[in-house]
């Protein structure tokens, strides 16, 4: 306990003595980890969108205005005969409109139209989503009744691919940034070590173990890492909150992840990465320094 207190006070002294480098390190870590966090949040959201599309993967057939009630039930029977079709539900245009208004209450659509602007439609569920393309092309052959066939498959697929590339790009960027950050942290702590070369020498001569000598520098690394990552977390929080507000206004139909747990996992991992960077930086700068000094001449 005594020595932990000693490590921390020594680390603070060391950081004060090379304050400029220390600040540069903290800012670099903040920037790198902020970018890291942004990529994590983007990929979280893309995956979320893809999942929400995938989970209600169904085919919608919009009917032409001219289709009569008898034609409609004929068509329904025809659809049910297609392979892999499990169920067919009819949605009248009025019900569709009511549903739409209810789903997007913040758009204030209530009294915009007298009659529903949406077409009548069939919603088709499959027993296996794999055959969705076959079913879609079959449906398209009923040209006289069908206005449009839509399904979310392609979008979901593209979204997942996009999210995958974003993840890869993010990973590459994070690796590059991590190396650059590590380099700066190593140099900052090395500066403290050079500042304290005398102290290290004397500590070694009066019998301090290497671990004891390393302590303050590792604490310094941890403190730099914590400060830097806290900065990143604060900026991420602000930016994400801002994004949620903006997105709800401009792109209200995009489901932004607001789940506290998932976001907090990202923020915690940002802080952990910051601490790991700090410790790694300290260990790297020390491995050279202690070797160099331990057989330094007394005189």
């Amino acid at each position: 306990m005594n020595s932990l207190f000693f490590y921390i006070s020594e680390a603070v002294i060391g950081m004060k003595r090379s304050i400029v480098m220390m600040l540069i390190s903290v800012i670099t870590i903040t920037i790198s980890l902020f970018i890291f966090g942004v990529f994590l949040l983007i990929s979280l959201n893309l995956n979320n969108i893809a999942n929400s599309i995938n989970s209600n993967l169904e085919i919608k057939v919009f009917l032409k205005e001219t289709v009569t009630k008898t034609e409609r039930s004929k068509f329904k029977q025809a659809i049910l005969k297609l392979d892999h079709v499990k169920k067919v539900n009819y949605t009248s245009k009025n019900i569709a409109w009511k549903k739409f208004v209810k789903e997007y209450p913040h758009l204030n659509l209530d009294n915009l139209f007298e009659n529903s602007p949406l077409p009548n439609s069939f919603t088709i569920g499959l027993d296996n989503n794999q055959y969705i393309l076959n079913v879609v092309s079959n449906l398209k052959t009923f040209k006289s009744w069908v206005e449009k066939v839509s399904y979310g498959g392609i979008i979901a697929e593209r979204m997942q691919k996009f999210s995958y590339y974003i993840k890869i790009l993010g990973l590459i960027l994070v690796i590059i940034l991590t190396i650059a950050t590590l380099f700066i942290v190593v140099n900052t702590i090395r500066l403290t070590i050079i500042n304290r070369q005398n102290e290290i020498n004397i500590m070694q001569l009066v019998g301090a173990t290497n671990n004891f000598i390393k302590g303050p520098f590792i604490i310094e690394g941890i403190l730099i890492g914590i400060l830097g990552s806290l900065g990143a977390v604060i900026f991420l929080k602000i930016a994400y909150t801002f994004l949620i507000i903006k997105c709800n206004k401009i792109l209200p139909y995009i489901p932004i992840v607001q789940n506290k747990l998932e976001i907090n996992i990202i923020l915690v991992s940002v802080i952990l990465l910051g601490i790991i960077l700090g410790i790694l930086g300290a260990l790297l700068s020390l491995s050279k320094a202690l070797k160099r000094y331990s057989f330094n001449k007394v005189k």
Binding site: N198, Q204, G207, A208, N210, F212, K299
Partner: peptide
């Protein structure tokens, strides 16, 4: 790894004092 314990048993004085 045992060098520190050896040195704890040996005091050292320098010409230039080496005080901090």
């Amino acid at each position: 790894s045992k060098i520190p314990y050896l040195r704890r048993n040996i005091g050292v004085i320098f010409q230039d004092f080496k005080l901090l």
